[in-house]
């Protein structure tokens, strides 16, 4: 009897918590989208009227559009370079046995344990010292460092999941290692590779905690621009721009979900 009660309490508690959690996780994004279509001059919820005026204002805004361009440019470069570097490392870690493997794996994931403030300031100082703060390199290299753990993890997961017998069969048929990688390994893990690149893209595209320190020559990324904008003013332009970011991110998640299934990302 008592155990029935405990079971019941746990079931109810779990259901309530889950309901709260899912709505809490989704709510901010939904509200941003909803308030971006307001026709009033100030941010308020529920939004009044329906218009696209804030989108027009966002697209006409020089600062937001150049920030969007910077973000996209950096994120595309980061996803290509991080994929190349991360794939090479993950391949070596997965397919070869060598001394210091655990150490290298730890190194690959170490960007996750360094607080963003520490990495941001450290990079800013390094590039100030190299006199390169007015270039795109601080942003590019900082984002590359951040993207490496995600790329290595995703590629490692897809490398260890697929059947290595196929590679051994190809080797037995006297294929060279390069042929094996190109004709067997790469096609098999292609979804994983694409997901890794996409993950690097979102990591770079959405980052604000490191980017906030790495503005160059007046050029900032879109999240940093939103941050500075929201810090001083509070109007629906920020909602319109944020909605653009939500659309990009959603599109990306849906693509990855199609490719490898969303839970494999996590």
């Amino acid at each position: 009897m008592r155990s029935d009660l405990v079971d019941h309490v746990m079931t109810v508690f779990g259901a309530v918590v889950r309901g709260l959690v899912y709505s809490m996780l989704a709510l901010p994004a939904i509200l941003v989208v909803a308030s971006s279509f307001t026709s009033s001059d100030t941010m308020s919820f529920p939004p009044t009227g329906l218009s696209l005026r804030w989108y027009k204002k966002a697209f006409d805004s020089e600062v937001f559009m150049s920030a969007l361009w910077t973000s996209t440019y950096v994120a595309v470069l980061v996803s290509i370079i991080a994929l190349a570097i991360g794939f090479a490392a993950a391949f070596a870690i997965n397919r070869f046995s060598f001394r210091g493997k655990m150490f290298l794996q730890g190194l690959a994931f170490s960007p996750l344990i360094v607080p963003a403030v520490v990495l941001g300031i450290g990079l800013l100082q390094l590039f100030a010292w190299l006199d390169l703060t007015q270039t795109i390199y601080p942003l590019l290299l900082g984002h590359l460092v951040l993207a490496i753990p995600y790329v290595v993890r995703t590629v490692l997961a897809s490398l260890s999941l697929h059947d290595q017998m196929l590679e051994q069969a190809a080797m037995n048929l006297r294929a060279t290692p390069v042929q094996v990688i190109r004709r067997i390994t790469l096609p098999l893990i292609l979804p994983g590779l694409l997901s890794a690149a996409i993950f690097a893209f979102v990591t770079s595209f959405g980052n604000v905690t490191v980017s906030a320190f790495l503005t160059y020559g007046g050029n900032v990324t879109l999240p940093v621009q939103i941050f500075t904008y929201v810090n001083t003013s509070y109007d629906p332009v920020a909602a319109a721009v944020s909605t653009l970011m939500i659309i990009v991110t959603l599109a990306v998640i849906l693509t990855v979900e199609r490719l490898i299934g969303a839970e494999r990302l996590a």
């Binding site: 901010p28 994004a29 604000v208 939103i226 998640i253």
Partner: peptide, 16 residues
């Protein structure tokens, strides 16, 4: 979604 979405966007949602 909140994990991949930029932090500022999520914070902005909370301001609303």
């Amino acid at each position: 979604l909140p994990l991949t979405l930029s932090l500022v966007v999520v914070v902005f949602g909370w301001l609303i």
